[in-house]
């Protein structure tokens, strides 16, 4: 199994190179040259050419890409065009914020999707409610869900603060009160997708013979569902977690803007508005690399939970 995990990990390098190169070339292709982007449409050709020379944007793209990667690997992403602080300085304090709500949202979505839909109760209609909620999560845009939650929990009930951010050091309770709504907002869509994926697999697994055997032992409905059906139905959800991280960034942008949270998503929006090429590129790179790494991680988890592969 270790060899298998090792092989999977090695694939991160080529796929990382491919996606980062794709991002680099397509961003440069789309915006023309960074100098044009910075100086705006009314700049003179001379000014643009001058700036391009200064920053080395006149060299072949492949050279620029290799240079960018080379520096990035040492932690040097250049300097922001607008604030002139280093890109690392701009990003680093904001990274934990986005990571926290992103990871919490995915964990919550996975947990809720698998448990709600596994509840088997003759009396309470948990399953249709889980499905209904999933459809709401998928169809309603993030900001509507966010506004709805703010309206309900902050305006009507007054239980939670509406927007703004409180770091951990301002107190755990205070912090949690501020992150709860953003996490719920961000997880809604993923809860929906995971639920539909999970339910399809759950229903298929329920028809398998070993489930009938488990019941024949005298286990309760709940034991059959949570011990035997759930663990056998979770693999497609894990795959989806890996695939969802691109969308997670999209969701984070909206959610962080809505709740005025100082994360990477907000920074990305700011950098696009300010045409701040180095910041934009660095965040884009972080996102695509995270997606590649997480896909691989999902693959590895897949391997670990499946004894058929684990033991070979």
């Amino acid at each position: 199994m270790l060899a298998l995990v090792g092989r999977r990990l090695l694939t991160v390098i080529p796929s990382g190179l491919i996606v980062t190169a794709l991002l680099f070339f397509s961003v440069n292709g789309l915006i023309g040259s960074p100098a044009e982007l910075m100086l705006g449409t009314d700049a003179t050709l001379e000014a643009i050419a001058e700036l391009n020379r200064q920053h080395g944007f006149d060299r072949p793209l492949i050279t620029q890409y290799l240079e960018w990667m080379g520096k990035a690997l040492t932690g040097d992403f250049g300097r922001s065009f607008t604030t002139h602080q280093t890109v690392a300085e701009a990003i680093l304090p904001r990274l934990p914020v986005t990571l926290e709500i992103g990871i919490a949202a995915i964990v919550l979505a996975t947990f809720a999707a698998t448990t709600f839909s596994s509840v088997t109760s003759a009396r309470v209609v948990v399953r249709p409610m889980a499905t209904g909620l999933a459809i709401v999560g998928i169809t309603l845009p993030n900001f509507i869900i966010g506004i709805g939650l703010i309206y309900l929990f902050s305006v009507e009930l007054g239980w939670l603060p509406s927007i703004g951010w409180a770091p951990w050091r301002t107190g755990i309770i205070n912090h949690l009160q501020h992150v709860l709504l953003p996490i719920l907002t961000l997880s809604a869509y993923f809860y929906g997708v995971f639920t539909l994926v999970y339910q399809a697999e759950y229903d298929a697994v329920r028809r398998r013979l070993f489930v009938r055997v488990a019941k024949a032992k005298g286990l309760s409905e709940r034991q059959v569902s949570f011990r035997h059906v759930l663990p056998n139905s979770i693999l497609p959800v894990i795959t989806y977690v890996g695939l969802s991280l691109g969308q997670l960034m999209g969701g984070a942008v909206v959610t962080e803007s809505l709740f005025s949270i100082p994360g990477i998503g907000g920074l990305l929006v700011d950098s696009i508005v300010a045409r701040d090429y180095p910041v934009m590129m660095a965040i884009g790179m972080i996102v695509v690399i995270t997606v590649v790494v997480m896909n691989t991680a999902a693959d590895i988890v897949y391997t670990i939970v499946n004894p058929q592969i684990r033991l070979d």
Partner: peptide, 28 residues
């Protein structure tokens, strides 16, 4: 159902036609 559960596997047990799919693949 809760009384039937105490009968299943206890007073009456059953073995099935397809041994290849009778066991849960993820438990020993």
């Amino acid at each position: 159902e809760n009384r039937m559960r105490s009968v299943r596997g206890n007073d009456v047990a059953m073995i099935f036609q397809e041994p290849m799919s009778s066991l849960d693949p993820i438990y020993s």
